[in-house]
Design a protein around this nucleic acid. Structure first.
Lengths: 153, 153
DNA sequence: CAAATATATATGCGCCTGCATCTAATTGTC
DNA sequence: GACAATTAGATGCAGGCGCATATATATTTG
């Protein structure tokens, strides 16, 4: 009995590498295709939608940046500046956090809610075109399952 | 008979969206984890390795940027500047192209060859740790197959 | 409770990316 | 063969990201 992936000492193990390369290429391409569909429709980037959707889910209580961070797997400094930009466009508000003076509470504004609603059709069409249309329901589920295994913990 | 993914008119279809979100999160996270492993080991980014590997495969004939572009699914201006940087570090050379005065031929240098060789162990370890170790051989193959369906053509 | 340490978020700086546009060479048209 | 259209590649500019570090508050420790 031997481990399939062992013993790759000095040369690229072809099958594994090809899957790896494909993950790079495909994810980058599909992601950026959806991004430019959105941009072409005059909307802000994907990440903005994601943040607003999370905030909407949290309702009036809002969310701490820390929570958003781990949810969205963003780096702290990136989220901080993303919130800057979105706050600048009045899609969200930062409020002081009563339980922790260092922290803050981020809340979606009515403008943010409206943006979510307006954006969805364009976003949906983009996902559909660039992603969902290429897969059957089963394949989609399989893909989700496999990807989940790639997350630590 | 009906199409599974049709009729998602005004609300996110949950299963499909979750696969989509996972693709975003996972690919971004795994990619950037490998990048920082490489950086931590003192090496240049992943894309440099990829370019050099392609160039090595092309041998002394080299490759036109156009060919690299479509192979690696890079945008023209990004590749152009990537080649600038790599040429600056003497990992490759740009030579005039005899068949087309507008074009050029990119060739790997001995320094580039050495970098490839030195980088591989770190790169391999990173891929192994962040990607391959989470999947069985079958899962890897399945993932590759599903991802392939997401590429146009 | 003072001092040390840890945590939440912000920010200056340099590199990378996208967009639009530029330049130079090639191909097609009459 | 002159002129228009196309193609290969480069580049100025603005914005996003990573890194290191700053700032302010919270928690722990002696």
């Amino acid at each position: 009995m031997y481990r399939i992936n062992s013993g790759m000492g000095h040369r690229p193990p072809v099958r594994m590498l090809s899957a790896w390369v494909r993950l790079q290429r495909v994810s980058q391409r599909v992601l950026s295709a959806v991004e430019s569909d959105l941009k072409a429709a005059g909307y802000p980037p994907l990440a903005w939608y994601d943040v607003l959707l999370q905030l909407k889910g949290a309702g009036a209580d809002g969310l701490r940046p820390l929570a958003l961070q781990s949810e969205m797997l963003l780096k702290q400094y990136n989220l901080s500046r993303l919130l800057d930009r979105m706050e600048g466009e009045r899609y969200l508000e930062r409020q002081p956090c009563p339980e922790d003076g260092r922290g803050q509470i981020v809340v979606i504004t009515p403008d943010g809610q409206r943006l979510l609603t307006r954006m969805w059709p364009a976003y949906e069409a983009a996902i559909q075109r660039q992603f969902a249309a290429q897969l059957t329901a089963e394949e989609t589920a399989q893909l989700a399952r496999l990807l989940a295994k790639l997350l630590p913990r």
